[in-house]
Amino acid sequence: LEARLEQANLLKKVVDAIKDLVQDCNFDCNDSGIALQAMDNSHVALVSMMLKSESFSPFRCDRNIALGINLTSLQKVLRCANSEDILTLKAEDAPDVVNLVFESADSDRLSEYDIKLMDIDQEHLGIPETEYAANISMPSAEFQKICRDLMALSESVAIECTKEGVKFSCNGDIGSGSVTLRSHTNVDKPENNVEIDLTEPVALTFSLKYLVNFCKASGLSGQVKLCLSNEVPLLVEYGLASNSYLRFYLAPKIGD
């Protein structure tokens, strides 16, 4: 494997966003890119990252390899990079280590680190292709604020999507609260758009603790996409350049 990423910062942000949910992960490398899928310990949330080969330049992966990496270790090493550094990831066949080289774009500084790999026997889940009943795009900072605000009142949030808009509501010991968003187009600042694409009304309840955790990815993308269908896990997607993405799935709370 040899993969050069123009911004080491991208991988750093991804790792910062997921390391409180998942600890040891396989980075599955093949000629289409670098993928990661991991569930949290309680099997309620799942992280799915895809960094497509087009996100790298150049990208070369001659044989499929799984790089088992402890994310705390990876975070430590990525913190050694300067924010504008270029990152090259390298691994040999049947590797013991993954090699990270940070290059400064405007100086001759070159730093190099090896991280020891681990054997991770990871469960892989098949996620069915789903036509979601509601697809909502909204500013990622807005979603983060809603989740944090409602978590002050309750452990869980009800997300209801109708043709009127999307309503986030909660009920707790001190009282209740709700935030409703309608479709909204801002020509000057498309990052502020709220788009709601609905085929049928949806109402689901989710744990706010996990949603707040997912929102650590807000720095990766100005917009977040929420995809919902009744009685299936919520998909929270942060789109990255070149069709790469960071996705989170969260199982709903059902019944009483």
Partner: peptide, 14 residues
């Protein structure tokens, strides 16, 4: 309170 399902209820081990 509603019951927290886990992902095995929805996704298949592959």
């Amino acid at each position: 309170a509603p019951f927290q399902k886990d992902l095995y209820n929805f996704f298949i081990k592959s």
